[in-house]
Write a protein that binds this DNA or RNA. Structure first.
Lengths: 323, 323
DNA sequence: CTCCGTCGTTGACACGTGCAAGTAGATCGC
DNA sequence: GCGATCTACTTGCACGTGTCAACGACGGAG
């Protein structure tokens, strides 16, 4: 590396020592520096385009400003919820002087974070999972769950779905699960929450259906479901994508929504507003979570014990034409 | 930092010098090391859980394995195209020994990359934009456009839209632009490509419409458009989100799609398959771009001159019920 | 004039690593 | 038998930074 401008260069340019330069640029309050030399250093630094070299200051013992977020890839369109949280979190952390960087892909790639030496690592793996403990060991850095309290968050949305359909006068519910096997754990949480809430409200035990991703098959499945369970009049979908599948199937089967059956999704995907009929859904306001979580992460980054923050377990129904 | 295990610790544990430890762990081919000591070092390192400290090796002059991607936040659901490219690129770069990290948000935050000292920076800003030159100056690191040849990419999709509608027997086209002002530059590229292709094919000059995000307003707009231009029988949407708006408006207005007007979007959003009617769209295969681009980035990271790689300007029509 | 405190500045060290150069001891060539 | 080569290591420097302790100058107090 020949091209790097070091603080030694600045010192030479300003005709001062490197120490003085360092004191000026970090404006160390314990040092008294006359305005004249201050300006001299600043001018020299500006002239040379000096930028302190991160690795060197880290080596010296400075705390990193980096927060590393580890998640699997963004394959599905519905991952936009997580993407939104990450985006917001990045902005919130910036106000604490921290910088969020995001690494997609398999989490077992340990060498990744070596070069960047983050202050904190956020992992999408839940706190209980084995991958989590492994990470803590791998980095010599605190590891936090990226989405703490996720089960409550997921369950809360499902509960709100049931409450909303009850308000709309529905009494016998179905649950549409996604076809992807890797979503099974989350789907199970939603399903259990729906079952529990239905029981609490004195409703009939809900019917569960794993909906095909194929439109024709989904149509047949929906027809069969309503034939077999004619009393079903409301449907909670795993998320808006599954809800879209239900709407498409209902349209193709000539089933009236919400006349014959009411449908509600989760996520408040922007396309839901444009569905036929417009899709009712559940929206979760995560802004207060994000700000609280950012503060907690900042504490951990400073070496303190971070306060526990959980994703909100309450959610809001967005009522549209499909329910 | 008390807790860090250094190579000195490993050396002491193995009863050898630090240099030997370094040679073993980096298996330096210029050194001959007997298997016995080799194992001794490896065992000691394993026992202590030693992980070399990235900043220190960077300081020593090692090349960083990090590639920093800078883009604005992922707000809109349609950003999933970019998200997909980023995900794929991350995997491709890993095969070159590089690690992609992604920072969302405003690009003017220069201090961000300081701590992580990347080998290359990828900016979503186009090569021509002023922000681009600024970045190159700010980092002392090569900056590449994250999506090179974006105009051709965008135009190619639009051209394919026109060709497809012509194949379907449509002769007079409309173009539906998005309401967001920040998309205007991209939208203009699409519009120009459509105009040019229509002229080349001897079609009438297309009609341009900036569609409201409000469903009711969009319905009125679409009605007015078809009343004013009764000869219009095909519509190219800016992307699938706008196309969804068109489909919703057509449904609400009682306009038959594709009977009265054929509609085609861009992006191949997964929800398009579930639209009413199923949305025709344009799909671009970026895998060969991604692999070629990853190779180019790896060259630049090694200090060589990277070969120019462009996003594909050709695209494929996905024909569904809406056209 | 001497002593001492303050101000402004500097030399020197440490952080953890990679690698060039050097060094004992063993082995080889003649 | 003795220098030359080779093996298996070690000593030591450099990377760029933050900061402690020291140091000269200077001015005021006695």
């Amino acid at each position: 590396m020949s091209g790097r401008v070091t603080s030694t260069d600045v010192a030479r340019e300003a005709g001062l020592s490197r120490a003085t330069v360092s004191y000026v640029l970090n404006d160390d309050p314990r040092q008294t520096i006359p305005e004249a030399t201050r300006q001299r250093v600043l001018a020299a630094a500006e002239r040379l385009g000096y930028r302190p070299y991160g690795p060197a200051r880290l080596l010296r013992g400075a705390r990193s400003t980096l927060v590393l977020m580890l998640t699997p890839g963004l394959q599905r369109a519905t991952d936009f919820v997580a993407a939104g949280i990450v985006t917001q979190l990045g902005m919130a952390l910036r106000e604490h002087g921290l910088h969020l960087v995001w690494q997609l892909g398999t989490e077992d790639d340990r060498s990744a974070a070596m070069d960047l030496a983050p202050a904190v690592v956020l992992s999408s793996a839940g706190e209980g999972e084995p991958a989590f403990a492994e990470l803590t060991q791998q980095f010599s850095v605190p590891v936090l769950p990226a989405f703490p309290g996720l089960p409550g968050f997921l369950g809360g949305a499902a509960v709100t779905q049931v409450d909303h359909l009850l308000e709309r006068g529905r009494r016998v519910l179905a649950y549409a699960a996604p076809p992807r096997a890797d979503l099974e754990p989350t789907s199970e949480i939603r399903w259990q929450a729906i079952v529990t809430e239905a029981r609490r409200l004195g409703l009939a035990h809900p019917v569960r259906l794993t909906l095909s991703a194929n439109r024709g098959e989904a149509t047949a499945q929906l027809r069969a479901l309503l034939a077999e369970h004619p009393e079903v009049d409301g449907l909670c979908a795993y998320n808006d994508e599954v809800a879209f599948t239900v709407l498409a199937a209902a349209h193709d089967a000539g089933i009236d929504v919400p006349g014959r059956i009411a449908v509600i999704g989760v996520d408040n995907h922007p396309f839901g507003y444009l569905a036929v009929p417009a899709l009712s859904t559940i929206e979760s306001d995560v802004t207060e979570f994000v700000t609280a979580f950012a503060k907690s992460v900042a504490q951990v980054a400073r070496g303190e014990e971070g306060r526990d923050v959980l994703l909100p377990s309450s959610a809001r129904a967005v009522a549209r034409a499909s329910s």
